[in-house]
């Protein structure tokens, strides 16, 4: 019915269908957002695919089971990313004692990526960027991922991260400075 829509095409009708328990609408919603949610979790957890899969499942399950409470699209998007932030933070807290798995993401084995092996230089750049991102403290890593993958506004990020827009702006600014310093050699 509605499978294959982009997140921009997710309408109030689809959310309304989800609220009524329409499984196809659920699936459309999942398809529209799954890669972004998974990617945010994957980069957040330093390339740990198992952790990213768990977070994605947890986020969508909570989303789908609670969607009956929503009235409009704006709330939906904000809530989705709040769930992502909460799940990542909870996951990071739980992982703290054992230290996060820090398996390097191997870009060549990631499904859905372009054929990067044909562009070695680009792959090297990508690897450096991911390493720099993984080295950012949690509080700076999350806003960068939210901004990069979903292009959330400051107010949307503030709502998702339960902090002020000023805090978001300052963290993004510092994160970008740190990334710029770490990636200076790429210029």
């Amino acid at each position: 019915m509605v499978a294959g829509l982009s997140d921009r095409e997710i309408t109030a009708d689809i959310i309304e269908s989800c609220r009524k328990g329409d499984r196809e609408a659920f699936h459309a919603l999942f398809l529209a957002y799954k890669d972004k949610v998974y990617s945010i979790a994957l980069y957040f957890f330093h390339g740990d695919e198992a952790a990213a899969g768990d977070i994605t499942q947890q986020v969508f399950l909570k989303l789908l089971l609670g969607i009956g409470q929503f009235r409009n699209e704006a709330d939906f998007s904000t809530w989705l990313y709040r769930l992502v932030v909460n799940a990542c933070m909870d996951g990071a807290r739980r992982a703290k004692p054992q230290k996060l798995v820090s398996r390097e993401i191997d870009i060549d084995t990631l499904p859905g990526t372009e054929s990067l092996e044909r562009d070695f230089a680009r792959a090297q750049t990508a690897r450096s960027v991911r390493a720099a991102l993984a080295a950012l403290p949690v509080k700076f890593r999350l806003p960068v991922l939210l901004r990069y993958f979903e292009d959330l506004s400051y107010s949307e990020m503030a709502s998702a991260m339960k902090c002020s827009m000023g805090t978001v702006a300052s963290r993004l600014n510092r994160a970008h400075k740190m990334l710029a310093e770490k990636l200076e050699f790429l210029r």
Partner: peptide, 11 residues
């Protein structure tokens, strides 16, 4: 575009 973080397909 400089960040080069490809969107990864969820399993």
């Amino acid at each position: 575009e400089r960040l080069e973080l490809p969107l990864v397909k969820a399993p």
